[in-house]
Write a protein that binds this DNA or RNA. Structure first.
Lengths: 339, 339
DNA sequence: TCCTATTTCCGAAACGTTTCGGATAAAGTT
DNA sequence: AACTTTATCCGAAACGTTTCGGAAATAGGA
């Protein structure tokens, strides 16, 4: 592994000159620069980023703490799409990504802050964290390095967040059902340690209120963002609220569970029951019936999140908050109530 | 940012002692160790991994070059599942992952070798590369750091690979069709810059030969591993080979494309045409009809790939090759030929 | 010719660790 | 009493860069 010293020796100059030649400073003669470059080439020199970081304090690396990178996430590829967005933008701007091994099974001994500080990442993007995550608060409080939270509305000097407008999105979903004449609408929500659950619930209630309907907290079930949870919640709804004609699910995955239960129970969708989801995962366009849903641009979440972080790193912005719009995608799982 | 020096000063000992105390060497008095640990805690010291790497030459980091991390990959979450497997195993074994920003759009100026050497990763896992990738050969030839290739059968002192047995898998698929009495079988293959395409084609031919059928190279179409490609290939097959009753697709994504074409053309699956895929992506279990396919354990590809790499890093193995088994999953898109 | 700029180079320190080869002092051995 | 052990500590070098503050040599200007 050739170093800058080897080059210096061979070229008969100092390491300073080699460094400056290779880094394009203009106080080095073009002939010596050529020579140095040639020798570097010959020795197949490649700079040692570790040594460089040690002195420059820069790593051009962004830490990623994405707790929902796991097998289960393959169906809704939420984490994946976010990651793609981050990867693309960070790549464009020449940052590498360091994926921390956040091992959820054995609870971690090191906090996110410690991880990031140790590895000298310049900033971090955190996704998939629960609101009650023990290390989350520390990151926000210590405020010690720039970070972007996905779907967690906290800000600070060094912390920003990005999310999509779940409240309005949920409102759109429910209004879509209301527009179809549905009045008895249930909701299957995610677990309550997610900000988006609260927002989607609020959006649900907003829409009911707007339609002068009484809020129905008893018709809101917890599907904990899983397919099985959605299936079970749907089952409870069928049993306890036979009057319900439409259900709003806070995620497509739960909606798939709901569809499963409905099929098992012999209810036709959308004839007997309208179902609307949230996210627009890829399965939504393929399942049967195809799922009406609220599309969330997960890729953009990552893409703009990365952009925001890098802007913060390079002091280009005071913005600490980005809110993306969602979009209603009408497919086959909802339809107006037959009169 | 407190350093080891600050601790040394405050504790009235040398940096050597601090280092040794913190790293659990036994030539330091337990009382001083306690004291040092306490002070480290007070100063919220965290070791600088960059400095440490510089001297130890170890980064405990694995480089990831996964060229198919992109938006399009969200449907078949192949890259994602592989990543999950890598992430889990690497996490268990305490390695972090460095995701290189391989920007496919603007062709890269740095080779994979250069990237890995610069950042001092201890080894790398490469996935999604085409056989004719300009930098791939260099990695293999230079042999300069341990690496594991996914789905590319090349080995060397420092290079190993992992794949699943596509040839046998394809054979299983085609045999399934043959067992159902099908005799006119077409194939939609992936692009020819993938090792698995060659293998799946070979498996297809194996099975035909075994059944004493003539090889039908004219019935093999290129769907380039995309949904649209599969749709187009299916269209060609319908036009040119009306006698075909079953089609084997080298990926589920292409099979989805084929299904789309068949639906558009008014052909019923499986009544008029049997379709079998490869991969078992999550959509396969939800689409209509549900796709019969060959399941590939993508997660395990990553998991065992990571294990293999780390075993190489730590000189625990001479193994340079892992072959995983695939499994036939019969669903709704195939059925015996009506006599 | 003398003075000032300009061009081109370099020595040495610094970044934060680890580790080698001792050094010192106390304890044990004969 | 004169050794040898043992326990505990430390100085200094090393890892491969970058960068600060000059220095030497050459060119330009009067």
């Amino acid at each position: 592994m050739a170093t800058i010293k080897d080059i210096a020796k061979q070229a008969g100059v100092s390491v300073t000159t080699v460094s400056r030649a290779l880094n394009g400073y203009d106080d080095v003669n073009e002939d010596t620069r050529k020579k140095i470059k040639r020798i570097a080439e010959e020795l197949s020199y490649s700079p040692n980023a570790v040594a460089r970081s040690l002195v420059s304090k820069k790593t051009r690396t962004i830490g990623l703490i994405i707790s929902d990178i796991n097998r289960a996430g393959a169906k809704d590829a939420f984490a994946y799409e976010v990651l793609c967005g981050i990867n693309d933008r960070a790549g464009d701007l020449n940052y590498d990504l360091l994926l921390f091994s956040t091992n959820p099974s054995k609870q971690m001994e090191k906090s996110y802050t410690a991880l990031c500080k140790e590895r000298n990442v310049e900033g971090a993007i955190l996704s998939g964290l629960r609101l009650n995550d023990p290390y989350l608060q520390e990151v926000i409080d210590q405020n010690s390095f720039p970070c972007v939270l996905i779907d967690i509305p906290k800000t600070g000097d060094n912390v920003a967040y990005i999310t999509s407008d779940s409240r309005i999105g949920a409102g759109m979903a429910v209004r879509h059902l209301l527009d179809g004449g549905h009045r008895q609408i249930a909701m299957i929500n995610g677990h309550d340690q997610a900000f988006v659950s609260k927002e989607r619930l609020a959006g649900f209630q907003d829409a009911l209120e707007e339609a002068a309907l009484a809020p129905r907290p008893d018709c809101v079930y917890d599907g904990s963002f899983t397919e099985d949870g959605g299936a079970e919640a749907m089952y409870q709804i069928l049993i306890r609220h036979p009057e319900v004609t439409a259900v709003f699910c806070a995620s497509d995955l739960m909606a798939l569970g709901a569809l499963r239960t409905l099929e098992r129970m012999g209810r036709k969708v959308p004839e007997d029951m309208s179902v609307i989801g949230f996210d627009d995962i890829s399965i939504a366009a393929y399942c049967s019936p195809k799922l009406t849903t609220i599309r969330q641009d997960k890729y953009e979440l990552g893409y703009q999140g990365a952009q925001l972080l890098i802007d913060m790193l390079e002091n280009r912005t005071d913005n600490r908050k980005i809110m993306l719009n969602n979009q209603l995608i009408v497919r086959e799982s909802t339809r107006p109530l037959a009169k």
